[in-house]
Design a protein around this nucleic acid. Structure first.
Lengths: 191, 191
DNA sequence: GACAGACTATACCGTTCGGTATATAATAAT
DNA sequence: ATTATTATATACCGAACGGTATAGTCTGTC
């Protein structure tokens, strides 16, 4: 019955379903059974709501990502674990993941993009640092960390987005993760 | 000096820069140096503008995609040509490509998503048909056409989106295309 | 030169937008 | 009990929203 939390959850659902610009403050507060001043008391603005949602959902994930992923010796395992972190995250709150997928390709001059851009740059940096660890062992990958990071990230988020879109019925299992890991490491002919 | 075309181009620029919901009809018409009734004469509604933009830019690309890509014997060449089609398309109108990347992950109940969803399903179908041709030769890929299509599409659009985002300065060249083709076919260890 | 259809300008519609001024209720500290 | 702080409600703000009714103005046809 925490109203602040209530507002965030309902706003997230609405943002994911109707879009940030497409959903008004009034709809958020009626859905949350509060009134406008309550929302403005806790968040200051509509932007503040989105900012808080990102802070609440994404910060935790990024910290976990930064802490958990590391390359020791087995690349296959390391990649699989990264994918697992993403799929777990997406299943915890598919609405939020879908929203990030939408907003990070958002219009670069919109207010929503300015809010989320920093978070997604942090995400990218974490993945790229991992890839630098990899390339320090696999020297043939030296200098390609950027592209590898991009490719891995796109493969993962593509899988997750599809599963969310097609209804989460067919859950992502170990098989999917193994398959995607192989796709990244060995290409299609090892499938 | 074709006003209809003028409106579409300016609307595209604004949609890509400020978002579909984030940009009003009034801004479009003033930018295009026409008045509202002109826009409503040609397009009927704001939705109609977006619909026409998609029809104009995307239909042509999809037809080209469906006509040009085919698998004969050399998979490396076939994949490279698909990637080339996408990069060419994106360089022709980066604004539109960025808009598609944004809207196809859009809120599923928004009016913009309903407009664009069909186009992106057609795109997916075309790629999947190609992949079925491939799997009819490479039997070990049988039954995985969906995942392969998804992975290929995500790798390509990820490359294109990044290049658009980072400013189009470093153009996509044959080297990038070869590298991405290898990533898909053989994984990272052949890079 | 009358007339039809395509096009465009002025001015306006009701609604919703994000945000706030004011007042009151609840809570906790003194 | 008094007071300060936090939290919530009523009622409202000007601006912008998508869209349109009306009144033309062009252009080509007969």
């Amino acid at each position: 019955m925490d109203k602040r939390q209530m507002i965030m959850e309902n706003a997230l659902t609405l943002f994911a379903r109707e879009g940030y610009e497409g959903c008004g403050v009034m709809k958020i507060v009626t859905e949350s059974q509060v009134t406008k001043p309550t929302l403005y008391h806790y968040f200051g603005s509509k932007e503040g709501v989105l900012r808080s949602i990102y802070e609440f959902y994404f910060s935790e994930f990024l910290n976990k990502l930064a802490a958990d992923i590391k390359y020791q010796d087995n690349l296959m395992i390391a990649i699989s674990e990264i994918i697992s972190l993403y799929t777990d995250f997406a299943y915890q709150s598919p609405d939020f993941y879908w929203l990030t997928a939408h907003l990070r390709r958002g219009p670069r001059e919109s207010e929503s993009y300015l809010i989320v851009a920093d978070y997604h740059m942090r995400e990218r940096d974490i993945l790229e640092n991992f890839m630098k660890d990899v390339s320090s062992v696999h020297m043939n990958l030296k200098g390609m960390e950027g592209q590898l990071t991009r490719n891995l990230h796109n493969l993962i988020s593509g899988l997750v987005e599809e599963k969310i879109l097609t209804g989460l019925g067919n859950k992502i299992d170990d098989h999917d993760i193994t398959l995607l890991t192989k796709q990244f490491l060995y290409g299609i002919f090892s499938l």
